[in-house]
Design a protein around this nucleic acid. Structure first.
Length: 417
RNA sequence: GAGGGUGUAGCUCAGUUGGCAGAGCACAGGGUUGUGGCCCCUGUGGUCAGGGGUUCGAGUCCCCUCACUCUCCCCA
């Protein structure tokens, strides 16, 4: 048997109603916030991710599905959506038409990591971006949109964590302060943190190794080293969140894995999965679009992992059960062609109808209709056929009606309401 | 990349000191010649992950391989 690629997964028919609900709810919520859908391809030139995400990040260094096209060009399956979204914004000059652009996309991302609970090599994200606006209200609105998606889907046990990583100038100043502090502990830090000491010392703050955590507890915080404009921006974001009633917690040691974030950064954490497997995350990027060849304006965005979001939902929600409107039961070979024709009429009238040709006895037909959760059954046998009629059974009340064949569609539509 | 755990029917899992391959659910048929859900009966379905070894005999003991899964690093 040929099997699934490791870390990939099928969404089976029984899973689809629940999945479709999540995707639809996310899209509806974002449209309510003024976002419009945009769908870039799932494959881009490798250089886009190297430039956009940062060459020194884990994602670009070791997690990308990169391969050579037949003409020798290096292509990569997208590991996240923002780079492709901003590429499209720049390439089509969308900001000339609309100086503040709010867009979202939903689709699969690919990262070649070791799979585990809630972590896959292909996973779906809903990704939203606001480009061309620096207002702290925009930051709060984006966080509110992420929160609304999860509230509307009904996920529980979630927490919004926020931080400010400052503008590039603040960060450069803070980095020196942090390095001064860490220098005394260099021999005690884990290998990774020591390796990153020069290039990216901030990551030590987020390390999960016990000793590193202890050290990080006493480290100076970037929040205490922001300049006036960054500090007032962060304060304004919090004020706006409180106005909206969004529950949040300041996480002063949060550092995100993508290089492009500036100022506001946030994560959505699930109590069961813990902080190392966020359900969603995002932040502001003030120079990314320019880096990708677009105008020099800032933006902010977030991504939510749909599989992880789905884990916060209960399994037996009645919204997710299958159902059709009408089942057509043909009894005997003479009735079958007529039933076949009726089935087609029902479908053309917009009624969700189905049958099973290999089922013969009425008892078996009704069992199938029951399993399909059909609300009504059209029964057609020799008795009915002779009189040009059909029997229609209401599966809930067990009431039965005799209806002339040419009136079946009208009868079913009339009883619809 | 490092370290644990688990592989028996479509699914969830029993399987005793090594002695005929099992249950529940699901599926199909029947109990009712044309009336579902509950109940009862019957049936279909197995390379016991794969390979090798020990043994009269291996699902069970030993070795190897593979797959899945969880934890850590990191991300959604």
């Amino acid at each position: 048997m040929i099997t699934l690629i490791k870390g990939f997964h099928d969404i089976l028919p029984d899973d689809s109603p629940r999945w479709e609900f999540i995707v639809r709810t996310a899209a509806e919520t974002l449209r309510r916030f003024g976002f419009r859908e945009m769908t870039p391809p799932i494959m881009e030139r490798t250089e886009l991710f190297e430039r956009g995400i940062g060459e020194l990040t884990d994602i670009v260094e070791k997690e990308m599905y990169t391969f050579e096209d037949r003409n020798g060009e290096s292509l990569t399956l997208r590991p996240e959506a923002t780079a492709g979204m901003l590429r499209a914004v720049a390439e089509h000059s969308l900001l000339r038409k609309e100086p503040v652009l709010k867009v979202f996309t939903i689709g699969p991302m690919f990262r070649r990591e070791r799979p585990s609970k809630g972590r896959f090599r292909q996973f779906f994200q809903v990704d939203a971006e606001v480009v061309g606006d620096d207002s702290p209200f925009t930051d709060a609105e984006v966080i509110a949109a992420a929160h609304a998606i999860m509230t509307n889907i009904g996920a529980t046990g979630l927490m919004m964590e926020i931080n400010s990583v400052g503008c590039p100038e603040c960060r450069a100043r803070y980095r020196v302060v942090l390095q001064d502090f860490l220098r005394a502990y260099l021999t005690e830090l884990c290998d990774d943190c020591r390796r990153r000491y020069e290039r990216n010392p901030l990551r030590a703050l987020d390390c999960k190794v016990a000793r590193c955590e202890e050290i990080a507890r006493d480290a100076p915080l970037i929040l205490d080293h922001l300049d006036e404009s960054c500090r007032s921006h962060f304060q304004a974001v919090q004020d706006a969140l409180r106005m909206l009633g969004i529950p949040y917690r300041i996480e002063p040691r949060m550092v995100r894995g993508l290089d492009y974030y500036t100022r506001t950064a946030f994560e959505i954490v699930h109590e069961e999965l813990g902080r190392s497997k966020a359900v969603g995350g995002g932040g502001r990027y003030d120079s990314l679009l320019k880096e990708l060849g677009g105008p020099d304006v800032g933006g902010i965005g977030f991504a939510i992992g749909l599989e992880r979001l789905s884990m916060g939902l209960s399994d037996d929600d009645p919204r997710f059960t299958r159902s059709i409107d009408v089942y057509v039961a043909a009894l005997g070979d003479r009735a079958q062609p007529e039933a076949f024709r009726i089935l087609d009429l029902l479908r053309k009238a917009g009624i969700a109808a189905d049958t099973r040709y290999s089922t013969k006895s009425l008892k078996a037909h009704l069992k199938v209709a029951d399993r399909f959760r059909a609300t009504r059954v059209v029964m057609l046998g020799d008795n009915e056929l002779e009189r040009n009629e059909a029997t229609i059974r209401d599966m809930n009340t067990k009431e039965q009606f005799t209806v002339r064949i040419e009136n079946i569609v009208a009868f079913l539509q009339g009883a619809e309401s």
